[in-house]
Amino acid sequence: MRNAWQTLFAWLDERLGLHSLYQNLLDRPEPRGNWWNTLGSASLFLFLLQVATGIFLTVYYNPSPDHAYDSIQYIMNEVAFGWLIRGIHHWGASLMVLVVFIHMLRTFVTASYKYPRELTWLVGVGLLLLTLGMGFTGYLLPWHQMAYWATTVGTQIAGSVPFVGEFILKALRGGPDLSALTLQRFFAAHIWILPALMFALIGLHLYLVIKHGESHFPDKDD
């Protein structure tokens, strides 16, 4: 007897290919893994958590020198659970850098970057850079003293590159000085440009992981 659910599922499956999705994405065989293998998905989890809390923060945050600090204080002191959302976003950023880094180290130690997973590694390096970029752009947004002056120094360092230094400095700051323009472009980079790139690279990374399967832990024969 086919009940209503089975009928519905069959109908959807015929059109969406749910069953083959399930087989290809979820019901895959994998080498026996251990807790070190969870770091990649932990990075993904942290990324999604940052996306969710980040979206919530933009509901109140205002990226202008006049209002940025006050709006953050408002989130922290006035909005229900604002301290929690910002706290998770703040600490999640630190933890994400840490987890991504350890994930990369694990890949290095088990030599999982070797044939046939070279491109997975390449994309992973891109993701590490984007994560650090997110940390750098996000650090300025609360517009407090530490953020302002650390970013002044940080962009100055980028400006020390020979020949193109001044160009890079102005491109980062949106002018010679740290100003409203800097805050605006860091905000745009932090919530639009870098996350869009990250989504794209994460998609590619996951596709490659599924395509080649997770690497096994090497033994004496490898």
């Binding site: 953050i72 600490w91 407090h144 003293q145 002056w149």
Partner: peptide, 12 residues
Amino acid sequence: ATFAGVHDSPKA
């Protein structure tokens, strides 16, 4: 988030 919190320096 609950026990360590976020400590902001004063406004830029």
